[in-house]
Write a protein that binds this DNA or RNA. Sequence first.
DNA 1: TGAAGATGGTTGAGGTCTACAACAACGTCG
DNA 2: CGACGTTGTTGTAGACCTCAACCATCTTCA
Lengths: 156, 156
Amino acid sequence: MHVAQDTADRLTAGLGQLIRAGRQISHRAAHELYGDLPGFGWALLVPLERDGEQRCSALAADLGVDGSVVSRQVAALERAGYLVRRPDPVDGRASLIGLSEAGAAALARTREVRGEWAAAALADWTDEEAATLCRLLERLTADLGVGRAPRPEAAA
Amino acid sequence: MHVAQDTADRLTAGLGQLIRAGRQISHRAAHELYGDLPGFGWALLVPLERDGEQRCSALAADLGVDGSVVSRQVAALERAGYLVRRPDPVDGRASLIGLSEAGAAALARTREVRGEWAAAALADWTDEEAATLCRLLERLTADLGVGRAPRPEAAA
DNA sequence: TGAAGATGGTTGAGGTCTACAACAACGTCG
DNA sequence: CGACGTTGTTGTAGACCTCAACCATCTTCA
């Protein structure tokens, strides 16, 4: 209850603006943001690289999206050869999704082009400013209670 | 070129996460974010309130989206009674879009519910932290060079 | 004056990402 | 074994976006 009324305006407006900007950029220069990856690939491959093989449902929970989204995206990325799927040895219903070599390589390339993009966009920023933004962004996401850390309920 | 490689990762991942979180929330609780406004209404009405009557093309430039998006959204918001359109007296091709009374009221209500939402989400934040996030967010958007046409007074 | 070209807005087609519902296959437990 | 929950897939639908094609209207200039 500490935050000024005006802040909600600025925050949501700024966020909306940023989202549209990001969308526009990724539309205009998909290669700079995604490398060889299809649109959603980045979001899906990063947790796989970080945490290793996992199930669709774990990915869905991590990303905070519906399982059907992951199912389709995984199918596309598998067709493209960026990840491999093997039956879960302890549960016949599930599959374990893992990064293929091509997937890891694509992720590395994407990371590289993103690094260049970030360097250009943040040319005037100090490390500390950028780190602060990251930190606050991550904190905001956490406080919104979606994705990685399922949280109890917030009052209306 | 001051920003660490790792920062691009955190930034884009964090942003993606936040975007998905926002989408999920606005899907689940549209009323808390938009009040009586249809989905995109907020983004469109805010600049109208801030800068007064303007053309579709100006709105599109401001929001950084295609004119066709604005055209459709304006049509919907006009049907809903949230804005009024009158022919531009100096250019027969153009219309001037303005906020109706209902639109201004809806905007005020939305601002109110958003304030509550923000208060809940940012309950643990200090004013200074929230302000910092806003500032950095706005700066990032500006540095991405999309949207808001150069506007002398509103610069940062 | 009058055609050529730029600009404002609309519409149609298509793409991406999303959720929800229904379903088949499998696992778990009484 | 049979009821029930879980995992992943598919069908359907919606929001938001772009691009391309189009008409109506300025603007420019010979």
